[in-house]
Simulated scan of single mutants.
Amino acid sequence: MSRELKVAIIQTELTWENPEENRRLLSYKIDAILSPVDVIVLPEMFTSGFTMNPSAVAETMEGETLNWLRSKAKQRQALIMGSLVISENNKFYNRMVCVEPSGTITTYDKRHTFTLAGEHKVYTAGTEKVILNYKDWKICPLICYDLRFPVWARNTENYDLLIYVANWPKVRISAWNALLKARAIENMTYCIGVNRVGQDGNKHHYCGHSVAYDVLGNRMDNLPDNKEATEIVILDKDVITKYREKLNFLNDTDNFSLEV
Rank of each mutant, 00 (worst) to 15 (best):
E88R: 13
F50T: 09
V41K: 05
W152G: 04
I33Q: 01
Y164I: 14
P224L: 01
D200I: 00
K121P: 00
D200E: 13
L216F: 03
L25G: 11
I33L: 00
Y145L: 00
Y159N: 01
T107P: 13
S102K: 04
A58I: 01
E21H: 03
L216V: 02
V57D: 08
N255L: 09
L42Q: 04
R111M: 12
N248G: 13
D238K: 00
E13M: 15
S83A: 03
W168K: 07
F149A: 03
C144V: 11
S83Y: 08
H204Q: 14
P101S: 07
S55G: 11
M96A: 12
V211F: 10
P169L: 05
N218I: 06
W152P: 02
Y28C: 02
V194A: 06
I30K: 00
P43Q: 08
S48T: 12
E59D: 01
K203R: 10
P43S: 01
P150K: 11
G103H: 07
G217C: 06
I173A: 03
V165R: 00
V151E: 05
D31C: 06
E59N: 08
S102V: 06
I10D: 08
L223Y: 01
N251C: 09
R23E: 00
G208C: 02
A58S: 14
G49Y: 06
